[in-house]
């Protein structure tokens, strides 16, 4: 089943940009587990609650991956804000991940 993790923006912030992402994983396979852990660590550190992440398990929902044009997992799609981007692999390359999410390295917001 696809897990949805939605974080509501903080009440005090009036103008916020929420980063919307979808991560495709293969069950509890090692790279998939690492990818989830790496992504959540980055999100907690850089985005606080300004993100929405949906995790799709391709073992259970292969048709979703095919429909979205995803051929390998783990695979992260940043859906908004524009421009969209993709990162393949276990997301251990933090700089690459930050660049794909449009976050300058070392920028703690």
């Amino acid at each position: 089943m696809a897990r949805k993790r939605a974080k509501a923006p903080a009440a005090r912030e009036t103008v916020t940009t929420v980063v919307v992402m979808r991560l495709y994983v293969a069950g509890k396979a090692p790279n998939s587990v690492k990818a989830i852990a790496n992504l959540e660590a980055i999100c907690r550190r850089y985005l606080k609650d300004r993100y929405k992440l949906e995790i799709v398990d391709v073992c259970e929902h292969p048709q979703r991956a095919l429909a979205d044009g995803v051929f390998v997992t783990p695979s992260l799609s940043k859906l908004s804000p524009a421009p969209t981007s993709n990162v393949i692999g276990n997301l251990s390359d933090t700089d690459n991940l930050l660049a794909a999410l449009g976050l300058p390295a070392g920028d703690l917001q």
């Binding site: 293969a26 790279n31 391709v58 073992c59 292969p62 991956a65 051929f71 390998v72 997992t73 692999g89």
Partner: peptide, 19 residues
């Protein structure tokens, strides 16, 4: 760094040997 690939023919996710 890959766990699975999608097989467009069968429509299934195919796990790599290591995974």
């Amino acid at each position: 760094q890959i766990d699975a690939v999608m097989d467009p023919e069968s429509g299934n996710a195919i796990l790599l040997p290591e995974a």
